[in-house]
Structures are given as structure tokens and as C-alpha cells.
Design a protein around this nucleic acid. Structure first.
Lengths: 251, 251
DNA sequence: CGCGCCGGTTGACTTTGGTCAACTCGGCGG
DNA sequence: CCGCCGAGTTGACCAAAGTCAACCGGCGCG
């Protein structure tokens, strides 16, 4: 259907990629029209996910990379005793599914925290195409590595000794990630429950709740349930970067 | 020098790869002689590292993947206030350097904890060759993903509420990793300081020390400074997998 | 040979965060 | 409209981990 008018076709594709936040993958790689079409062919635009829908589950055989278009996805893994550890929250423009490439079996579960839409890219096909497009290949490695580095921020946060610092770090990172997507960085709605957040931060739910309250009384944030407004970004940053023992001085 | 007798040449290469633990990268990929030679060409065998030598440092421009041949390497990242967070310990057969592919700048520091030898693989060249060898390509992705999954075990460990559980988990993982390399899994010398371990586990040094002592008095391990002997692997495993509240029941 | 240092351990005390339980608030269904 | 339910908050209490300090013991150096 597209072969008749290639100009329009490419624009459509670029747009779909741009909208899909896949731009990180294809646009800067300066891929030509024909190649872009091939890439586009394998990208599945999934019907939107509802809250609590699973994108994939631990143990799923099929392996794909996913790019979050809208909404938020939580990844988690089952612990031996039956409860779960939240591994990450994925916001628009971020990818997930890199676990699972190793043995073609997902090692984590991905669940929508709110209405969400994603692009799915079957990994086998992607790597096939990438093999023939050095620019795409490089881009793919870059994205994988970036994901790897992001991943390392999690233990950095969990290594902090104080609940307040961990939460500040988290809120700061959400703010930054929103800024990168040209979204309002100082006011947003958290899509995860306190329970999810607690697991992610390595705390219990009550501690998270108290940490929110403290930030509120310090006038650093204004929080009403899941709605967060950052009142004093500087103080939040200081707190996030504070040596654990300095904590008292700031908050 | 090798062109004269290809059979010998290939065997040599395979051997060097096998010894280098790079076998994961080239051997199972069933790469032919000519291709293996190309791969071998780019692999640099570094002179051994002494204790405290740096393999790379945060911010280093040059990006390579490294495979640990012998010894142990610690990776860490600088925190804003100046102290560091230990991100991982890399034992023989494991790779590091995946951070840094993204922006061709390492995001962590890698330091030898003891005499160590590694193979260095300049990433740019590796990906070039891999692009032409689908089998190698696949293998490379697989390794990257495995590393990604390994990375996720860190927050899982740090998410545990009790120091004893975290240490048990760590010792268990060391044991497993040694088993995978056909090394004695129940008796070994830790190469990292208590300080490094504390940072890695998200604890302070005294707590780590006490946790070791407790495991010792429970007769689960026998520890003398950095020498560890696992006396009761079952109990250690139970502890590692124990629901945090069950802790009292076991230890 | 012995002194001092460094890495590690142990003890006493403090503080933070976990536990348990009561309670609030908003949404939803009967 | 009422009452229930689930998510979240708050308080009282407790226990685990952090802090501070003393101490141990092996090693290296003077």
C-alpha cells in the first residue's frame, strides 16, 4: 500500500517512530526509507494495556523488547518465598524486556500501572535487521548499555542508609525523567502504589508513607495521595545527594 | 605466522579462548577458523593486574569489554559526596565493561581485588565482526542479557531486610559461581574487604562483621578473616531464601 | 625486635526503621 | 445513602542496624 508514494510513507513511519519514542532507535541512526520500512514492519503496535494488564510474565517464552509510549510499566521478580521485588518503573520513552534475551525466557514480570501503550519489537527479528545496518546496530548497543547503566542506579539508591534519602532520590529521578520527555517535572501523578514503591526502595510501606509526610512537613514537596508537587527542588536535590550523616542538617 | 598451518593455529586460538573464559563468546557459537582468527586478533591479552590496579575508571574514554580470566575485579561508582558504592564483584568467566558502551565513556570504575588477568575486547571492533557473524552476534546479545539479569540480583539482595539474609545470599552466590567454574564451592578466600562487602550489601562494616560472626556461631560457616568454609550449605540456602520474618526460626 | 598501622571484631549505646494496630479517607456497590 | 473495602496514614512499641569507641592481631617497616 505504501510503495506507491514513498515520501508520504516515510513521513508516516518517522512519525509513528517519533510518537513511539522509538526515535531513539531509528531516527538518529539516520536510517534510509527502505530500511526504516523494514524496521517498521516488525514493530507491533499493541492495543493499549489496561491497569494491571501484564505485558509479559516471568518465564514467558517469547522475547521482545518493548518501548513505553504512554503510561507506566512496573517490572518485578518473584522471590523464593512468594512475595515480589519490584525492579523498576518504566516511563514513556524507556525500554524494557532486555532480561529474557539470554535464554529467550523473560526473567521478570512486566505489568501496567495505568493505561499504557507500548511498541513491541520481536528481538530475533530486530537483531536480524540490525546485523545489516551498522548504524542501527550501534544504536541498539547504545540503548542496551544505557539500560544497563540505568539499572545500576537502583542499587545506588538502595545503598543509601536513610528512607528519606531514598525517596528523595526516587522523586528526583522521576522529575528528571519527566523533564527529558518535556513533561512538567515539578508536578505529577505517581502511578505506583506505596507498596510498589516500598519494595522498589527496599523499605516497608509505613516507612515510605512517613517519608512522604516528612518531606511534606519540610515543605519540600506537596503530596496528596499519589499526586506530588515538588516545592523546593533544590532541597530535594540536596537531600538526594546528602551524605547520610548530614541528613539532620537538611531535614 | 599462522597461515602456514591452519589446523594448529585454530587449536591454539580455541585454547586461548577456552582459557580466557571467552569460550562463552566464541566456541559455542561454532565459529569457523578464519572468523575465529579475526576475533582472536582483536582480543588483547593484558598483562596481569596487581591488587588495586585499575582496569578502567569512571569517565574513561576508551570502551572495551573485559572477560575475567583469573582473580577478581570490583566495580564501583562514585557518589556525589565522595564515597563510593560497590556495584559488583566479577569472578573468572564473568564479563564487565558493558557500562560505557552507551556514550563510549565508562560509568563505573573497575579495580583488581587481587592478582588478576583479563582479556580485553575493544567493543567497536567486536561489534564490527559480530555484524558479519550472526552466530557471534546472537552470542553477544545473550551475554549482554545475562549480565543484565545478573545485575538485577543486586537489588534483590539489597531489598532483603536482614543483614544475615543478605550475607547468606552473597555467600551462596559466590559458592554457585565457583561451582560453575568447577572450583571448590564450599571453601574459598574472599578477595574483597569487609568495607567493600558492606557497601555492596548496603550495610556498614560492623554489621557485616557481626553477620559473619553470627553465621559462625550458628555453625553455618567457618570464617577466619577472609577465608570462608561453608559448613552447612542447606542452612545457608534456607537463610538466603528465608522470608525475613522467618529469620528467627532458622538462625 | 618491637612499634604502629590497618583490617577486622566486639561491646555499649542510639537511632532508624520495622511491626502491629487503630484509624482516615475516598470510591464503589448494594 | 449507607456501609464496606482497600489504600494510605499515624501512633506506640520493639528490634535490628548504625554509631562510637575500645580492642585484637597480623604484617610491614623502622
Amino acid at each position: 500500500m505504501a510503495a506507491s508514494n514513498q515520501v508520504i510513507d516515510i513521513n508516516e513511519l518517522r512519525q509513528s517512530c517519533a510518537g513511539c519514542a522509538l526515535n531513539a532507535l531509528c531516527l538518529p541512526a539516520a536510517i534510509g526509507g527502505r530500511d526504516l520500512a523494514r524496521l517498521d514492519d516488525i514493530v507491533k503496535r499493541r492495543r493499549p494495556l489496561a491497569r494491571n494488564d501484564f505485558l509479559f510474565r516471568e518465564g514467558d517464552r517469547h522475547t521482545s523488547l518493548f518501548v513505553v509510549r504512554q503510561g507506566a510499566i512496573k517490572t518485578s521478580t518473584m522471590l523464593p518465598e512468594g512475595d515480589t521485588q519490584v525492579l523498576g518503573f518504566h516511563l514513556p520513552g524507556e525500554i524494557l524486556g532486555l532480561d529474557g534475551v539470554a535464554d529467550e525466557r523473560h526473567r521478570a514480570t512486566a505489568e501496567a500501572l495505568e493505561e499504557a501503550s507500548v511498541c513491541e519489537i520481536p528481538f530475533a527479528k530486530l537483531s536480524e535487521i540490525a546485523a545489516q545496518l551498522p548504524a542501527l546496530q550501534r544504536q541498539l548497543y547504545r540503548i542496551v548499555s544505557r539500560e544497563f547503566v540505568r539499572e545500576q542506579q537502583h542499587p545506588v539508591m538502595m545503598g543509601r542508609k536513610h528512607a528519606l534519602t531514598r525517596l528523595a532520590l526516587f522523586l528526583h529521578s522521576v522529575s528528571e525523567r519527566r523533564r527529558n520527555q518535556d513533561l512538567e517535572p515539578h508536578e505529577f501523578q505517581l502511578s505506583m502504589s506505596r507498596q510498589d514503591l516500598a519494595s522498589y526502595l527496599g523499605l516497608v510501606i509505613e516507612t515510605v508513607s512517613r517519608a512522604f509526610s516528612r518531606l511534606q512537613t519540610q515543605q519540600i514537596i506537596d503530596v496528596d495521595r499519589r499526586r506530588v508537587r515538588i516545592l523546593d527542588a533544590v532541597a530535594l536535590g540536596q537531600l538526594a545527594n546528602s551524605e547520610d550523616t548530614d541528613l539532620r542538617a537538611i531535614a
